[in-house]
């Protein structure tokens, strides 16, 4: 448990923001008066309360360093994949495929991240799971919807396990002058991408007029998107002191993270529409399911990982 000092500053900042948010929500609720229920305010309060829980959980996990981060994201992958595969096409014949995905592929991917085997964890799911799971499916001889079933299962693994595992994989990057601080890369990514989600929500609620993709996600507006992405990029730039980046580099990296996060939300919304649901799950009050909260993270994490690896890392 030896987190760098910058981590304490960041966490202090995050909790100050949460105290402020809870204060604002409290005043909004009071101004409304008791007796008048407003679903938007109630949802806002539920969301903020869930943020308290999520921020606390993340902080605790980070304090345990590498073990904490790998364990936390393995569990998040499990919860996310449980939601994803609930909605995908499957038949009774897929029992072994799904069991292999949950009980072998998922833990093995995180084991590879844990032992730092970049050469294998970056291809294990896209190559080995991709080829071998359909083989297991074929053995059962059920051909109905075969391609749909194997594709949707693979998609679930790519999104919920492969992409998500790139968050703890950030810890394996060796950056000169940044030794022992790589946990800050995770903190930076999470704060920027979740900050971008929150800021898009805030800008959208305050100024949102023009819908960006009415068919996919009625709550996303141009005003929310631009305001959120620009302010999140500035937020990331202002956090440059805890990263290996210069101010302008932190701005550009945050910009990419925020944009990818936005598109992640859009793609995952499209899947929800396709499957006819509003939320992925119900376990995070006010937010929906785990994937509703992780969609932006999983889309930005691999890109962030490769940007840092290519430009800053020595391995």
């Amino acid at each position: 448990m030896n987190a760098p000092i910058e981590f304490s500053f960041l966490i202090g900042g995050v909790f100050c923001v949460l105290i402020f948010a809870s204060g604002v929500a409290f005043i909004l609720k009071r101004r409304l008066g008791s007796g008048n229920a407003n679903p938007v305010i109630d949802n806002l309060i539920a969301r903020i309360n869930a943020w308290w829980a999520m921020a606390t959980l993340l902080t605790i996990a980070m304090l345990f360093g590498r073990a904490g981060a790998v364990t936390l994201f393995a569990l998040l992958s499990f919860a996310a994949m449980r939601e994803f595969l609930t909605l995908t096409a499957k038949s009774r014949a897929d029992h072994y495929v799904l069991a292999t995905a949950f009980f072998f592929v998922l833990p093995f991917q995180y084991y590879l991240v844990w032992i730092d085997w970049y050469g294998l964890y970056s291809i294990f799911i896209p190559v080995y799971a991709f080829l071998f799971l359909p083989i297991i499916a074929a053995f059962r001889g059920e051909t109905e919807n075969f391609l749909t079933r194997v594709s949707e299962t693979q998609w679930g693994l790519m999104i919920c396990v492969f992409a998500a595992s790139h968050v703890p994989a950030l810890l394996s990057l060796q950056i000169p002058g940044f030794e022992g601080k790589s946990i800050l890369l995770i903190a930076f990514l999470v704060v920027v991408v979740q900050g971008s989600d929150v800021l898009q929500y805030v800008f959208g609620k305050l100024f949102g007029r023009h819908k960006i993709a009415p068919k996919l996600s009625p709550s996303k507006t141009w005003e929310g998107f631009i305001g959120g992405v620009v302010s999140a990029s500035l937020l990331g730039a202002c956090l440059f002191w805890m990263t290996p980046f210069a101010f302008w580099q932190a701005f550009l990296v945050s910009f990419v993270i925020a944009i990818m996060g936005f598109f992640g939300g859009l793609v995952m919304s499209a899947i929800k529409r396709d499957k006819g649901v509003k939320d992925w799950g119900h376990l995070i009050a006010g937010h929906g399911g785990f994937i509703d909260r992780l969609d932006s993270v999983v889309f930005s994490a691999p890109i962030f990982f490769h940007i840092v690896r290519y430009f800053w890392s020595t391995v």
Binding site: F78, R82, E83, L85, T86, R92, H95, A99, F102
Partner: peptide, 18 residues
């Protein structure tokens, strides 16, 4: 809803689904 997918008859272990 869905429990028949978690553990179809004749299987020995459950798969996690909501």
């Amino acid at each position: 809803e869905n429990l028949n997918r978690v553990m179809p008859k004749g299987e020995f272990f459950p798969i996690p689904l909501i």
